[in-house]
Amino acid sequence: MKLLHLKNIGFLTDSEYKFTQPVGSQPGKAYGLPKIDKDGVPLRSIISACGTFNDKLSKLLANKLKHLRASSTIVINTFKFVKELQHL
């Protein structure tokens, strides 16, 4: 329903709308990565969303919204940010 609304207001094209429709999905894959710096080497839980129902939608939205991450007002490096604040 929300995708149809985004298509109707012009945020999504017809081909993007069809691309994002969830078809034949699979559940996320769970696995663990070892925390080698901890005693007993516990696992860090990871859930991969590749191939899940919202995988294509997340890729499309990330591509459409990437310009928001390229703003000069976003803090990428905290050390650089602190230096800029000290210069004010």
Rank of each mutant, 00 (worst) to 15 (best):
K2V: 14
L3Q: 11
L3A: 14
L3F: 12
H5D: 13
H5G: 08
H5I: 08
K7S: 01
I9C: 04
I9N: 05
L12H: 07
L12R: 07
L12S: 11
L12W: 08
D14R: 09
D14Q: 11
D14E: 15
E16N: 07
Y17T: 06
P22A: 12
V23P: 03
S25M: 01
P27F: 01
P27C: 02
G28T: 08
K29N: 14
K29R: 15
A30Y: 01
A30V: 10
Y31L: 15
G32V: 12
L33E: 10
L33M: 13
L33A: 01
K35W: 02
D37K: 11
D37F: 02
D37G: 06
K38Q: 14
D39M: 02
D39S: 09
G40N: 12
G40E: 10
V41C: 13
P42F: 00
R44D: 10
S45Y: 06
I46T: 06
I47R: 13
A49K: 01
G51M: 10
G51T: 09
T52M: 07
N54I: 09
L57M: 13
L65N: 03
K66N: 14
H67M: 04
H67A: 08
A70W: 06
S71W: 01
S71I: 02
S72V: 03
S72E: 15
T73H: 05
I74N: 11
I74D: 04
F81W: 09
V82Y: 06
E84H: 03
Q86T: 02
Q86S: 08
